[in-house]
Deep mutational scan, measured.
Amino acid sequence: DESNKPILLPNESQSFERSVQLLDQIPSYDTHKIAVLYVGEGQSNSELAILSNEHGSYRYTEFLTGLGRLIELKDCQPDKVYLGGLDVCGEDGQFTYCWHDDIMQAVFHIATLMPTKDVDKHRCDKKRHLGNDFVSIVYNDSGEDFKLGTIKGQFNFVHVIVTPLDYECNLVSLQCRKDMEGLVDTSVAKIVSDRNLPFVARQMALHANMASQVHHSRSNPTDIYPSKWIARLRHIKRLRQRICEEAAYSNPSLPLVHPPSHSKAPAQTPAEPTPGYEVGQRKRLISSVEDFTE
C-alpha cells in the first residue's frame, strides 16, 4: 500500500519547517483550565467582593489541597506544564494547583491565590483569567444561592456549585447557560463527603469543560472538536499529503500518493430520524474511523 510507505522529508523547505513548528504547539495530551472561586458570607451577589477574597475557610483550604498538586509557578516550564496563561514571573501569584493523568493536564485558576492589587480596583487582572475559563468551581460559603452570571465573562458556560453542609458533607450541583443544557445535566445534585469532594468536583468540572469545548467549536462548523492527539494525527497526515504533492510536482515521474478510497458502495440502511441538538453535539466527541485508517 503506497499510502503507508515511509517518505523522504525535504531537506530545505520553509513550509515544512513551519508545519513542524506548528505541530510542536499541539500538545500530545488534552488540556483544561478551571476557575475556582470562594464566596464568603454576604458575597453571593457581589463580583468585586468575591474576586477580592485572599483566603477562605478551613474546609475550603482542605478542598484545594485535594484538587491537585501545589506547584510554584516560577519553577514551571510552560512547554511541559500546562498553566492556561498564568504568568511565571509573579504577575498572577506564586502558587497554583494542577492535576494530570496519562492523557490530560488541568490547571486551576484560583482567585484566592492570585494577588489582590490596590491599583486594580475592579480586579481585572484576576478576571482576565477567571472570566475566560469555560467552567468555574464555586465554593459557596455564603449561606445564600449563587446565580450564574454573578461573575461577568463571555465564556462562563458552567458552574460547579459546592455548598458546604453539616457533618462534613457538601451539596454539589451544576448550573449552565441555556445554550449548554443539551450537553450538561443540571437536574441531579449530589451529597458528597469532604473527603471525596475534590475528586467529584474535579471530575464534574473536567466533563463540563470538555462539553464546553465542543459547544464552543460550533463557531467553526468545519472543524469538529477532536482530542489533542487526534489533532496531531490529522496535522501529520495533512503534512504527509502536502509533501507527496510537492514531490510529485517537482518530479512528475513519481506517483502521487493519495489516501486509500473505498470503491465499494456502502450498504443501504433504513433512514433514521434526524438526531436532535443534544445527540449531534455528543457525537462530535467521537472520532471518525477515517482518522485511523487513511
Rank of each mutant, 00 (worst) to 15 (best):
K126E: 04
Y60Q: 00
P252L: 09
V88K: 12
G149Y: 03
H55Y: 15
E17C: 11
A247L: 08
S15F: 08
S263C: 07
F134L: 04
L233C: 06
H235S: 08
E72C: 11
E17V: 10
P266Y: 08
D120A: 09
K152A: 13
P226S: 05
S13A: 09
K283C: 10
R69C: 14
V81R: 15
L171N: 03
Y29E: 09
L22V: 05
P115T: 07
R123T: 14
N251R: 11
T163A: 04
L37Q: 01
P226R: 06
E17A: 10
H215V: 14
S136A: 12
I71R: 08
K147Y: 08
L9I: 13
R284E: 15
D118E: 12
P252A: 10
D194H: 01
F95E: 05
R177G: 10
P198Y: 00
G84W: 05
S46D: 14
A49Y: 02
E72V: 08
R242W: 15
Q241G: 08
L113Y: 04
L73E: 14
Y167I: 02
G68E: 03
Q94P: 10
P10D: 15
A201W: 01
P78V: 15
H262P: 15
A247C: 14
S261W: 08
L83H: 14
S212V: 15
P10K: 08
L70E: 05
D141I: 00
F155V: 06
V158E: 01
T269L: 11
T112W: 01
P260N: 14
T112I: 00
L254W: 13
Q268T: 12
S52K: 08
S219V: 08
C89N: 13
P255R: 06
P260I: 13
T274E: 12
L254G: 15
K228G: 14
S261C: 10
F146C: 03
V160F: 00
R128H: 07
D87M: 02
G143P: 01
S193L: 01
A231L: 10
L86E: 14
V88S: 08
I230R: 12
E12N: 07
T186S: 08
A265Q: 12
I110C: 05
K228C: 06
I161R: 01
L183N: 03
A201D: 00
G68V: 04
P270N: 09
G182R: 12
D223C: 07
G182M: 08
G90R: 11
D223P: 06
R59P: 00
I161Q: 05
D101Y: 00
D30M: 05
F199R: 02
L23R: 06
P221L: 05
L70C: 06
M204Q: 03
S212N: 01
H262W: 11
E62Y: 03
P221W: 04
S46K: 05
Y167N: 04
N45D: 08
D145F: 04
S173K: 10
N170Q: 00
H216A: 07
T65K: 09
L86V: 13
F146R: 01
T96L: 09
D87N: 12
D223Y: 11
H109C: 03
P198N: 00
P266K: 08
Q268N: 11
F95T: 04
C124N: 15
F134C: 02
P275N: 10
D145E: 11
N209I: 03
C76L: 07
Q241P: 11
H216L: 07
K33R: 09
S52R: 09
K80Q: 03
N170C: 05
T112H: 02
M114H: 06
V119P: 08
